[in-house]
Design a protein around this nucleic acid. Structure first.
Lengths: 223, 223
DNA sequence: CGGTAAACGGACGACCCCCTCCATTTAGCC
DNA sequence: GGCTAAATGGAGGGGGTCGTCCGTTTACCG
């Protein structure tokens, strides 16, 4: 990334923003996002750009002008769902029972993963140089850490649980979501059921293999 | 597949078999398989055929003549590892402690998954029309079912464990193996640690979401 | 040593996806 | 209604993989 010339008050939005667009352009922008969400949910994040354009009823050029990079499209397409995740975390933090909050947020995010094949990738993908998610993600990590600490202090979450185990859960769930086909939802629920039982503090168990130190921003679809 | 003309004593081996080959051809065949295993382990199952050929030091045509379909190459390349899995299961069945056997086989297979990016795909991929694995797989399913039953009867495995939960475990582990990059091995160990704790029979826990009824032959890399 | 069939490998056409360019259409304003 | 800049869409060059064809090389046998 070339250095910027010292000053630029609005951080040079690569996306002009939906508001500054002409009416027909804004309409098309929405159609593209809708089509992208549908396509991603159905076929995963690898659908050709041209397929999304076709589904949206626009030309490829239109799509490319609005979303110059694949990442920018994905970012926009999943903003809503990511906000939903953030909301779930906020709710969990407000729950007087941190363990219940912990369970709820994990169940919810995993269910979303299982329902939408593209969501996982959007969720786990790192967006190099893209600051749109960075703040959101940092906030999520903080909130998660807080929730985990509280749940431990309440004696409900096992003490050797590591925050990175949340990522572990998401990755595992991703594997199930991608591999289990039509049974993905049921399989995901069952996996999360097993894991939550294991995460719950209980009578002393043997030592666990050490945490893998996974971080949200070090992960990608295929490593 | 066109109907066959009623009789063909040797079931028309698409692979002439390593033995009937000329010396140089057999040599090349081995080189191809070695290269395929390396490439799959490093880059997953999607490496271009040409890359494997190059790595093996042969032309594409040679590879294609020996292994007409991608599947046939994968099948051959992972035969050894699959045999190792089968061996692990056999050992587990011989273990006087079925729970220990169960843990060992799950740990071993998951470790293999984590170590070799291609192995999972080979392991889970369905091979339509390919009978090479069918017998092996049926035997594995039987053995697994037996192991699970014994472990339950020994009171070590929770009664509501379902055989399909083994597949669930493999899918989850696959997600971790594919997504955790360099930490895949550690992350996989930790996941399996959590799951095995959960699988272990213990003080009554709440009801689990129902099993997803996953079967080995209904799974594929991306469903 | 010589002949033959097996084996080889590179080149090639078909296909798909990415992304840009440009001639044409259209919305919004006077 | 007419003008202008924004917006559009499809064609096309570039890159990559697949799988086959065919002229050349090589192992094996007599």
């Amino acid at each position: 990334m070339p250095a910027q010339t010292s000053h630029n008050p609005p951080p040079v939005t690569p996306d002009p923003g939906p508001d500054a667009l002409r009416a027909d352009a804004r309409e098309n922008r929405e159609r593209i996002l809708r089509a992208a969400r549908e396509a991603y949910a159905l076929h995963g994040i690898d659908v050709p750009i041209s397929a999304i354009a076709r589904r949206a009823g626009v030309g490829v050029a239109t799509l490319y002008r609005r979303f110059p990079t694949r990442t920018s499209l994905i970012t926009e397409a999943f903003t809503e769902q990511l906000a939903e995740c953030a909301g779930a975390l906020d709710e969990a933090l407000e729950d007087p029972d941190p363990w219940r909050g912990f369970c709820t947020v994990l169940r919810k995010v995993c269910a979303m993963q299982a329902a939408d094949r593209g969501f996982t990738h959007a969720f786990l993908a790192r967006f190099p140089g893209d600051t749109a998610y960075a703040g959101e993600r940092d906030r999520a990590e903080e909130g998660l850490a807080l929730l985990v600490r509280r749940a431990k202090e309440a004696g409900a979450l096992r003490p050797d649980f590591d925050v990175s185990d949340v990522v572990l859960t998401l990755l595992a769930n991703n594997g199930v979501a991608n591999g289990a086909g039509p049974e993905a939802a049921a399989a995901s629920r069952r996996l999360v059921g097993y894991l939550l039982e294991s995460f719950r503090a209980g009578p002393a168990t043997g030592p666990l293999p050490p945490p893998a130190g996974l971080e949200l921003d070090r992960l990608g679809g295929t490593g």
